[in-house]
Amino acid sequence: MTDSTAPSLPHPLPDELVELIARRFRVIGEPMRIKLLDRLRSGEATVLALTATTGASQQNVSKHLGVLHDAGIVARRKEGTQVFYRVADAGIFELCETVCGSVQRQVAELNAIFEGAGR
Rank of each mutant, 00 (worst) to 15 (best):
residue 44 E to Y: 08
residue 44 E to S: 09
residue 24 R to N: 10
residue 118 G to C: 14
residue 85 Y to K: 04
residue 42 S to K: 04
residue 101 G to W: 09
residue 26 R to D: 09
residue 108 A to G: 12
residue 53 T to W: 15
residue 42 S to E: 10
residue 110 L to M: 12
residue 46 T to P: 01
residue 60 N to P: 03
residue 96 C to H: 02
residue 48 L to C: 06
residue 75 A to Y: 03
residue 97 E to M: 06
residue 62 S to I: 03
residue 56 A to T: 09
residue 95 L to F: 00
residue 24 R to K: 05
residue 58 Q to F: 12
residue 69 H to K: 12
residue 14 P to G: 01
residue 11 H to Q: 09
residue 66 G to I: 04
residue 84 F to A: 04
residue 113 I to F: 10
residue 32 M to F: 09
residue 20 L to S: 07
residue 102 S to C: 08
residue 22 A to Q: 08
residue 54 T to V: 00
residue 27 V to F: 02
residue 70 D to R: 12
residue 26 R to G: 00
residue 45 A to Y: 00
residue 112 A to M: 12
residue 29 G to K: 08
residue 34 I to L: 11
residue 18 V to Q: 06
residue 57 S to W: 06
residue 51 T to S: 09
residue 57 S to N: 08
residue 35 K to T: 03
residue 17 L to I: 14
residue 110 L to G: 01
residue 65 L to V: 08
residue 15 D to V: 04
residue 4 S to P: 03
residue 51 T to C: 00
residue 75 A to W: 02
residue 24 R to F: 15
residue 86 R to K: 13
residue 28 I to A: 05
residue 77 R to W: 13
residue 39 R to T: 11
residue 25 F to W: 11
residue 76 R to V: 04
residue 51 T to M: 03
residue 109 E to G: 10
residue 13 L to P: 01
residue 62 S to L: 01
residue 78 K to G: 04
residue 47 V to I: 14
residue 34 I to C: 07
residue 40 L to C: 06
residue 91 G to E: 03
residue 90 A to G: 11
residue 38 D to G: 04
residue 71 A to W: 06
residue 39 R to P: 02
residue 116 G to E: 11
residue 78 K to F: 08
residue 68 L to V: 07
residue 99 V to I: 15
residue 87 V to K: 02
residue 112 A to S: 14
residue 103 V to S: 06
residue 25 F to H: 07
residue 34 I to F: 05
residue 99 V to H: 01
residue 44 E to K: 10
residue 49 A to L: 01
residue 60 N to R: 14
residue 28 I to M: 12
residue 85 Y to W: 15
residue 2 T to H: 07
residue 8 S to E: 15
residue 51 T to I: 02
residue 78 K to Q: 15
residue 61 V to I: 02
residue 95 L to Q: 06
residue 5 T to Y: 13
residue 94 E to R: 05
residue 34 I to N: 10
residue 67 V to K: 02
residue 24 R to C: 07
residue 30 E to I: 07
residue 23 R to S: 08
residue 98 T to N: 00
residue 26 R to C: 01
residue 41 R to F: 14
residue 111 N to E: 13
residue 83 V to K: 06
residue 9 L to G: 00
residue 117 A to Q: 10
residue 31 P to A: 07
residue 82 Q to I: 03
residue 9 L to Q: 11
residue 71 A to S: 10
residue 85 Y to F: 15
residue 55 G to E: 04
residue 118 G to N: 11
